[in-house]
Design a protein around this nucleic acid. Structure first.
Length: 411
RNA sequence: GCUGGAGUCGUCUAGUGGCUAUGACAGCAGACUGUAAAUCUGCCGGGGUUCCCCCAUCGUUGGUUCGAGUCCAACCUCCAGCACCA
């Protein structure tokens, strides 16, 4: 399958300056750039979709320049619904390192060039920037941008001069990479398209060059029509918090997230988030439709994405763990010492002697003790497969289950 | 700078002095299922000794009042109009 065909098959095509996708197959300049801002110390599955698109270009011989936005991250990409809080500089430094590692983990290629746009903004003089970059942008056009329109006017939440300028800073990145390395194309999520065109504009005006943008649609839930990823409240992070206790997504929860996708979404998500080819996906979907209750498609999806993000070893372990925990014939009281030790690597652990309510609260299975009591009252908690109706002391090795798919180990 | 309007839970939203701050979406749990969807039920600020009790909360800080999301003052932020200025 040619690059252009694969992009369209996988749904990686939104707005673009490229008239005919087939031009990508024969394009001479195969250098592209993609960037992410260090607004947190982990990427989310929203970013991962764009990375999967980048990986698709790389598989077809394109050369990636991956930018971590040390400069742009200091300002913040304007959102539709309001101004961002400025992040402390130390936090940005930390975030950069973490995100860089995550990007390298997904884009595995010998000719990756990692960049930080702070390197070329650090010594930038404000007046130089205004004379070179600011001068070639028309205020009228900038004000017409969608992100500006959403923020100003009646009912708007306002926008600061700093965030308003974000687009120019990002545009300059493209110009810089064009000049320095001859990068001729930017890949991005559809929400970034406007910012990317700033770069094209700059390259045309200042270098009389032709540059392109290729964007991929934001991933949406086909049932609700809402996007999933960050800023919708229920972020799935690529970083794993140890055993589910922290702020990020444990490997187990990550796997479960994909496993629980509805039938309507699963093909769409497989195209985006796995490396399976068209024939493989079609065959899996065909089998899935014959016996949807086996959840073959969801299992495959969960397996593949977990492997990409957390590696084959973890993916294997989680697959086995899931098999054991959800098998109706599993006897929860007869796990061997070795099995329990394997569980503790991926599930939150509670010491014997703790009360059930405390255990639920400290492992994050419940957000508070009050919630923990509620769960017990509602019959959401079971111990070794048997429902618990009272707060009890946990004094032997056991598996606690909350709801459909949250577990902890008492040891 | 002046005048007017606005700021309420993750999001949107009702609430012109009265005890318990509405409703919707999202989220969580239960039932039914296939760890799905749809549907129904409950929860949805925090804590506890849980048929009940305590604490917190309507942008911030004070004030008036027996009682304030609601009235007053100052401040912060946003919107609109006007003025000023290129």
């Amino acid at each position: 399958m040619k690059l252009s065909e694969e992009l369209i098959y996988r749904g990686f095509k939104a707005e673009t300056t490229i008239e005919n996708p087939a031009d990508l197959d024969t394009r001479e300049n195969k250098k592209f750039y993609w960037g992410a801002d260090p607004s947190a110390d982990s990427l989310t599955i929203g970013n991962l979709a764009a990375l999967m698109m980048c990986a698709c270009f790389v598989r077809h011989g394109y050369e990636p320049y991956l930018v971590v936005g040390g400069a742009t991250g200091q300002i913040g990409d304007p959102k539709d619904n309001g101004e961002r809080e400025l992040k402390p500089l130390e936090e940005i430094e930390h975030n950069k390192k973490c995100i860089k590692a995550q990007i390298e983990n997904v884009i595995k290629s010998d000719n990756v060039t990692m960049c930080d746009n702070y390197d070329w903004f650090r010594d930038m003089k404000y007046l130089d920037f205004l004379r070179e970059v600011g001068k070639v942008f028309s205020m009228t056009q900038l004000l017409d941008r969608q992100f500006v329109q959403a923020r100003i006017g009646e009912g708007g939440s306002g926008i600061s001069y700093a965030e308003f300028s974000y687009s120019l800073i990002q545009g300059y990145d493209f110009l810089h990479l064009y000049r320095e390395y001859g990068v001729g194309m930017q890949l991005c999520g559809a929400d970034q398209y406007g910012n990317c065109t700033s770069g094209i504009h700059l390259i045309k005006r200042l270098e009389n060059g032709k540059a392109d943008v290729w964007s991929t649609p934001l991933v949406i839930d086909p049932i609700t029509g809402r996007k999933f990823g960050k800023s919708e409240g229920n972020a799935i992070w690529l970083a794993s918090s140890d055993n589910g206790g922290g702020n990020y997504t444990s490997i187990f929860d990550f796997y479960q997230f994909w496993l629980n996708q509805p039938d309507e979404s699963v093909e769409y998500l497989m195209k985006i988030y796995t490396l399976l080819n068209k024939e493989e996906i079609e065959s899996i979907i065909a089998k899935h439709q014959k016996a949807p209750e086996k959840r073959l498609a969801q299992r495959t999806l969960a397996r593949c994405v977990t492997e990409i993000v957390h590696g084959a070893k973890n993916a294997n372990a989680i697959e086995n763990l899931t098999k054991v925990l959800f098998d109706k014939n599993t006897d929860f009281t007869s796990f061997s010492e070795d099995e329990i030790i394997e569980f503790t690597e991926y599930l939150p652990v509670i010491k014997k002697g703790t009360s059930l309510v405390d255990a639920l609260a400290t492992t994050g299975l419940a957000e508070s003790k009050k919630k923990a009591r509620e769960f017990i009252a509602q019959g959401a908690i079971s111990l070794n497969g048997i429902k618990v109706s009272d707060d009890i002391e946990l004094n032997q090795t056991a598996i606690i289950k909350k709801g459909k798919n949250k577990f902890a180990v008492v040891k």
